[in-house]
Design a protein around this nucleic acid. Structure first.
Lengths: 167, 167
DNA sequence: AGAATACATTTCATACTTAAAATATGTCAG
DNA sequence: CTGACATATTTTAAGTATGAAATGTATTCT
């Protein structure tokens, strides 16, 4: 190691320090929370629905006729099993999803009803438009850069979390 | 408008389109959720606490001896008034916060107790370390870029949300 | 002063969320 | 076949979150 190291005030080569990381996390959280609350309120106002319901309908919409098991939904939405149970009960009460018979009687497979599919399509259209409007203050290049950096962040999180489990 | 417009497949100059925005939002949400769940679990395991509690203690720690009103906390944490009432009740039951007498009997002013301040300091130290570790996969330059882009995103959100209110 | 109004907070009903315990079903070794 | 284990889900208890109604307190107008 060189004795006369460069007296650079920044650490552009290495990982960010604690304060820098904290500032980054705070910004990230603020953006996510603001978008979530905006979407949440509009789903309520315009469709009498909620974000968790929308997320579950979205997963089921992608899954098509075969539907998903409770466990599938739990993993995809990153929420607990018990959470999915209640969510599914309410969506079924509203006639948006239905149960499918299956061989293994432990698993509950659900899929969208025709009504559920139609209602989700309308919500998804509005949702995409809301997001587009919210992010309209970014240029296309900024959005690309941001997406790439978030992908890199995702990798960092994965590696940091998985290293904990490995001794 | 020019008849022979450039046949560019991207729109680097303009705002991102719907699909691009959606992809960006999904990445942002995944990162935020992953960090939140990790921190949440560690607060539970190591301190028997939660993220909402930590956030309220953090706001009160910054406020110092004078403390904050319920409304202050509600605005800072971007949560409803009713939420703050319950949160404060539980933190007080744990001896982490205390009420202050005030002139206006409508306002409830609260601040950290000595115990609350000490407990928060320990949590904050761990919290900073966790965040630093989670983001260690980014270089300092990437973290700077990401922070700046999130600041730009924040501006975009503010302008999009405020324009709705103005006819 | 008294009425109207504005303000800060709490209460209420409901929904969402989790971790842990309980339930029910399937699989497999002996 | 039967007992042990594994798997998928539901139930339970507690906390977190919201919007709307209710409560209590200040301010202002006349």
């Amino acid at each position: 190691m060189s004795a006369a190291a460069a007296p650079l005030p920044d650490r552009l080569g290495g990982a960010p320090d604690g304060k820098r990381s904290l500032r980054l996390w705070l910004r990230l959280l603020t953006c996510a929370t603001t978008i979530e609350q905006t979407i949440s309120q509009r789903l309520r106002d315009d469709f009498g629905s909620t974000l968790p319901r929308f997320d579950m309908l979205s997963a089921l919409d992608r899954a098509g006729e075969a539907g998903l098991t409770m466990g599938d939904v739990s993993r995809m939405l990153m929420v607990s099993n018990g959470n999915v149970t209640g969510l599914a009960r309410r969506l079924k009460a509203d006639g948006l999803i239905e149960h499918l018979p299956g061989a293994d009687r432990r698993v509950q497979r659900v899929r969208l009803t025709a009504d559920g599919r139609a209602r989700f399509a309308a919500m998804a259209r509005a949702h995409e438009h809301w997001i587009e409007t919210l992010l309209a203050g970014l240029t296309g290049a900024e959005a690309e850069d941001l997406t790439a950096l978030l992908e890199q962040t995702k990798r960092s999180l994965r590696s940091a979390i998985h290293e904990e489990s490995q001794p």
